[in-house]
C-alpha cells in the first residue's frame, strides 16, 4: 500500500502550494497517473479519503485523476505507437529497442481553491 506514501507526498506539496498562494480551502486536486506506474487510481482515492479526514484545508476537496496510456517510440525507426498487451516491440520494424515516452507520469497537475 505505497499509495498512502504517495498521497502523503501529494498532500505535503499541496499544503505548501496552498500556503504560498493564500489558499485556505482546497476544492480540487488534479493528478496525472500513467498506466506504466505502480500507482493504482482506486487505491490513491481511498488513501486520499483517509488523509482528508479532519484536515480543514481539504474539507470538501475532490481528487481528480487523469490516466495516461502507454506510448513508446522505436529507437531504430522512430515510429511512435501505443503499447498493447505489454508488448514493447515496434509494430513496423519489430525492433525491441523501444523507449517509453508516455505512461510513466506521476505528478500533480494543478490545485483549485479559495
Amino acid at each position: 500500500m505505497h499509495e498512502l506514501a504517495l498521497i502523503q507526498g501529494v498532500l505535503d506539496s499541496v499544503a505548501k502550494a496552498a500556503q504560498k498562494n493564500d489558499i485556505e480551502r482546497i476544492s480540487k486536486i488534479k493528478l496525472v497517473v500513467g498506466q506504466m506506474t505502480a500507482a493504482l487510481p482506486h487505491a490513491l482515492r481511498f488513501c486520499f479519503e483517509v488523509e482528508k479526514e479532519g484536515n480543514p484545508l481539504l474539507e470538501g476537496a475532490e481528487l481528480e485523476i487523469a490516466e495516461e496510456e502507454i506510448v513508446a517510440r522505436c529507437m531504430d525507426c522512430g515510429r511512435e505507437f501505443h503499447v498493447v498487451e505489454l508488448i514493447f516491440r515496434c509494430p513496423d520494424c519489430h525492433s525491441g529497442g523501444v523507449t517509453v515516452i508516455k505512461g510513466r507520469e506521476l505528478y500533480i497537475d494543478y490545485i483549485e481553491g479559495e
Partner: peptide
C-alpha cells in the same frame, strides 16, 4: 483560483 503545479509526486524521493 487554480494553481498549476506540474510537480512530481515523488519529487523528494527523486
Amino acid at each position: 483560483m487554480r494553481v498549476v503545479l506540474r510537480s512530481k509526486v515523488l519529487q523528494s524521493n527523486e
